[in-house]
Design a protein around this nucleic acid. Structure first.
Length: 136
DNA sequence: GTTCTCACA
DNA sequence: TGTGAGTA
């Protein structure tokens, strides 16, 4: 339960998410416009991404690298997409990959960011922000 | 300096 | 998707 709070709590700026996911701000905003992620907003209307959003973005990225298009990604995330015959065979596999790989990939990726970040650099902030998720 | 929206190449 | 304009 507490874990769910953390995943929905941590709020990252789009800049942080860019470094974490290696996606461009354009892409991130584009995916948001398509409902792939629903980041919160600050009073200044700036996006605040939760751990779930970053996770979702990484999933999207992995699908993108597998050659899926927006429509395919939307289906994978269960946003739209009436499940077709072909999807019935692919979807379960994709979901299996998501649970096994993504969690590991995300943790590994974030861990890398923390390990590679140097004090004083712009990434040191990320270390401080993310470190707490590994000190549990 | 960073992010936001919108528009155009 | 990228990039520039004009803001907040």
């Amino acid at each position: 339960m507490g874990d769910e709070i953390r995943r929905n709590m941590a709020l990252f700026s789009i800049g942080t998410v860019i470094k974490l996911t290696e996606l461009t701000a354009r892409q991130i905003r584009y995916y948001e416009a398509h409902g792939l992620v629903q980041p919160a907003r600050t009073e200044g209307n700036q996006r605040l991404f939760s751990f779930n959003d970053v996770d979702r973005l990484l999933i999207i990225k992995s699908y993108l690298e597998k050659g899926l298009n927006m429509a395919g990604i939307k289906e994978m995330l269960g946003l739209e997409a009436p499940v077709t015959m072909d999807d019935k065979m692919v979807a379960p596999v994709a979901k299996g990959i998501r649970k096994d790989m993504t969690d590991r990939e995300l943790r590994q990726l974030l861990k890398q960011q923390i390990m590679m970040s140097k004090p004083g650099s712009s990434t040191s902030l990320i270390s401080g922000e993310l470190s707490r998720f590994f000190i549990n």
